Computed example of a mutant assay.
Amino acid sequence: MAKEQIVALCADDYGLSYGVSAGILEALDAGRITAVSALVNGPRWPAMGLELVRRGRDADIGLHFNLTLGRPLSSMPKFAPNGEFPPLSQVVRMAYGGRLPMDEIRVEIDRQFDRFEAVTDRPPDHVDGHQHIHVLPGIRTALLDAMAARRLGGRVWVRDAGDGVHRILARGANARKALSALSLASGFRREVRRRGFSVNDGFAGFSDFHPSFDYARIFQSYLRAPGRRHLIMCHPGHVDEDLRKLDTVTITREQELAFLLSSKLPEMLERRGLRLARLSQADRRPSAPQAAAAQ
């Protein structure tokens, strides 16, 4: 019998605002997502984090490491001189120009891990980055160093934002963004595995966040050419005033949430023979009694 194909569906930006967090909790309660990535540098994290722990027992809860949105948890006079993180474009230029103040970034990495664990009372199940900054040169190594120092090897999976070119082209939708992420993540998978951490195999979910798009149609493309440990990111949530102040991605979050809560998602998965699962449990072998019962 062929091995069942699994898909992990991860909701990003938990903790960004109350509305975004509440929407993700709705999807979580409905069993429509299997992972949540949390932003911990904002004021919403402590209270919303406790609620996530209470209701997220059937999902991987991870750190959405952030260097591009809001305020840092540590003093960063070189990286964030005005007290606000710089935009992604500036971080990318600094990373590839070898101009990142790595001393400040290493401290911020530890602060964000500490704040995550102070609320959840345990390490994250996975680690990724807001706007995929975790794959950038310098940042990736510092992040893996911090994880190794915390002895998270073999316990935590890391998001690989890149995928094979053939898979990206087979999906078609938003291929330019996917290829850009693949370029940024060059060598990332190899370095993560060398350091003793597992990664997803297959990645999709790129969007232009345009309100006129049919998210259900786009989501179908995410299911094409899935990897063995296929991961799809999504950005569901409710729009509130906090979100409008912090992010330009608003109405499409409600469109994504509506799709996740509809009957369309399970129907799509069933047609393709796919099953939602947690990547932290995807490779666990059944116990001897379970294996015997399956024969």
Rank of each mutant, 00 (worst) to 15 (best):
G164S: 11
S183D: 04
G187H: 04
A175F: 15
S221W: 07
F197R: 02
F213V: 10
I218T: 10
E191I: 06
R193M: 10
A170Q: 13
R193W: 02
A216N: 07
E191A: 07
P211N: 07
A204M: 05
P226E: 12
G187T: 04
G227C: 04
V199Q: 00
L152S: 01
Y222T: 12
F188Y: 15
G227N: 02
R229K: 08
R159P: 03
A181P: 01
V165G: 00
Y222P: 04
G187F: 05
R195Q: 09
R194W: 11
V192G: 06
H230V: 05
G172L: 15
R190I: 03
L223Y: 09
R171N: 12
Q220L: 12
G196I: 09
L182K: 10
G227M: 05
A178D: 05
S221N: 11
L182C: 05
L182H: 03
S186E: 05
H210M: 07
F209W: 13
A175M: 14
S198Y: 01
G153T: 15
V156W: 01
N174G: 04
P226W: 09
H230Y: 10
S186F: 09
N200V: 06
F213H: 08
L184P: 05
I218Q: 12
A225I: 11
A173T: 12
A170I: 10
V165M: 14
Y222L: 01
A170R: 13
W157L: 11
R190N: 03
G162K: 01
F219P: 09
A178Y: 01
L179F: 11
D163F: 02
D214Y: 06
A173E: 14
S212E: 14
A175S: 15
A161L: 09
R190G: 04
H166K: 10
A216V: 07
R228Y: 04
A204Q: 05
V158I: 15
G153W: 02
G196D: 13
A216K: 06
G202A: 01
A225P: 09
F203Y: 13
V156D: 07
Y215F: 15
G187V: 06
E191K: 05
S186W: 09
A204D: 03
P211H: 08
D208K: 08
S180F: 13
L184W: 12
Y215E: 12
F188L: 00
L182T: 13
H230S: 12
H210P: 00
D208E: 13
R224T: 14
R195C: 07
R229S: 09
F197D: 06
A170S: 15
F206Y: 14
F213T: 08
I168T: 15
G154Y: 14
S186N: 08
G196A: 10
E191Y: 00
G202C: 03
G164R: 15
R194D: 13
F203G: 01
D201V: 03
G164C: 00
F197S: 05
G154M: 13
P211I: 09
Y222N: 11
A161D: 11
D201H: 03
I218N: 08
L231R: 02
L231C: 07
S212K: 10
R190F: 02
R224K: 15
G154K: 11
A216L: 05
A170G: 05
K177Q: 15
S183I: 08
H210R: 10
A178C: 08
G154Q: 14
